[in-house]
Design a protein around this nucleic acid. Sequence first.
RNA 1: CGCGGGGUGGAGCAGUCCGGUAGCUCGUUGGGCUCAUAACCCAAAGGUCGGAGGUUCAAAUCCUCCCCCCGCAACCA
Length: 612
Amino acid sequence: VIADAIAGFKRLQRLPVCALTGTDEHGLKIERAAREAGLTPQELADRYAAEFQRTWEEMELKFDAFIRTTEPRHTVAVTELARRIKEKGHIYLGEYSGNYCVSCEAYAPEGEKNCPDCGRPTEFMKEESYFFKLSAFQERLLRFYESHPDFVLPVSRMNEIVSFVRSGLRDVSISRTSFRWGIPLPDDPEHIFYVWFDALTGYLSGVGFGTDPAAFAERWPADVQLIGKDILRFHAVYWPAFLMAAGLEPPRHILVNGWWTVEGEKMSKSRGNFITARDLLSKFPPDYIKYFLLREIPIGGDGDFSWEAFVNRCNSDLANDFGNLVNRTLKMIENYSGGVIPEKGDDEGGDVELIRFSRETVELYKEQFDRLQINRALETVWELVAAVNRYLVANEPWALARESSKRTRLNTVLFNTAETIRLITVLVSPVLRRGARAVLEQLGIGGEVDRLGPEDLKWGVLKPGTRLGKVDVVYPRLDLDVVRASDSPSEGRSSLGEAPTGEEKPRIAIDDFAKIDMRVGRVISAERIPKSKKLLKLMVDIGDEVRQVVAGIGEAYSPESLTGRLVVLVANLQPVRLMGVESNGMIVAATVGDRPVLATFQEEVPPGARLK
RNA sequence: CGCGGGGUGGAGCAGUCCGGUAGCUCGUUGGGCUCAUAACCCAAAGGUCGGAGGUUCAAAUCCUCCCCCCGCAACCA
């Protein structure tokens, strides 16, 4: 949405624009998801790509280029980029080692003893891998940052990156042999390019690198690449280093955006509170959604989506201020001027003031948009909207209409109002495509938003005598109660959170189950482990002995509520130290949302009894 | 002492670097207008600026200590 708004703003000024987006379709996750869905990876990727494209279309986002990493031209680009880097001697064959989860076939992040996906213990593994000599680029990167202090925006993110690079860089692995779904290295096809190397190159392949040198020369380097804060390091460190190594220019800016929360909470599957673009599109026209997203938070920060805030913002700004202004004005032109834009007379003080303010608004808007302060730019436009509403009240055209001697004055006021509305509409057209189209049509000047240009950003373009189109409400008000009633971000899911639709585990033999020693235990004592958020140290009586176990249930249960309680304990797990405390077993609990709920018995059971 | 962000009228925020009438949007209340989408315009009410101490003629702003909230990280055997 941000990229589209920026692109639209540049197009409005008739500047050359190439807005590129795409999908990253290689890697283990797709390979696995496809297998589970009974599809080939390509089929699955096709589905995703179609889904994304449809969403953009419905959102009325206009991209000039779209790259899928499974396209042949992308393979060409990746291969070529790697060739150039290798030619300069920045790639070497080494050994990658780390904690590997066999069942997921993936390495856990450094320091993780357990797989972040399935929670199973990982094994230390080594494999051959090609490495990129990132360590050799530390100084060059730091010099680059110094000479381009606004490379990463906002600056706080730039600082974060500088201090990260200062603390030292290690070479990064760029190939894997543990999966096949990807682009093989040309010189050693056993190796597949690791997803980051592959995906980042999409910025190049999408504009013709290796396939269309003329287009590439024209379009690279990118002026701005938009990312979320979770992938900052790849874009601000690895990416410019890859490019430098290949003798290419880094992008001019990396614009880092924050995350959205919903009603103050993180969006997550387990909370069942995530809202997709499609959820919103099924309820609201794209203008409302885009306006809220762009107006509500400054780029770079985190934002919170709440239905109340959404409805308030849209009603207040789109329906009440702007939409209603358009409607009241055009209705007056219909009633007092026969539905035709009138010829204006001489301007008075208030008129001159309005025109001056309009021009200032255009300048300020451009300035703020250029600084990527889109929320500010919109705010600026709405100050003009308010000024026009005030202008109407000050001049009371409805009163002028009652006296035939005030005819000329009335025409002047109506013209000035209509013209300022036209200007406002042009200003918001990069964001509010649908509304802009509607307003321009109602003004009788055609709704071709894509044809707008810099000449439309001047005051005084509207031609007297223009016949209005059909006047209708542009932005209907939303009703919070209705929205709430149909609000179902978690529609189809239990209010307790998503049921474990998750991965089916493979069938096992009874013997496998018999390996697990589960017993009834009674909690004798429970206390919090210092400095930990959810760990409790429990002493559990399991009949013949008292076990010390550590359980991650401290957020859902207080220590006091646990003493005396019957629990189910897995007694033959390997001991482990958690936050320095030894644990000799595991308390069995269901996971509901992200809360544990302890398993227990309705009838009295003696501690030590075995479960099977 | 893990890293970071934050606590300002009912809600969400700005102001804090560079001390000096506490501002914005929404909401509330009263009024105006009647062209308009219960919309628009005007006005008012409403704040111990998390707490305590200190510096200063003067502190939301500077210093010290404390409390609380939210992310991330470490842990959910």
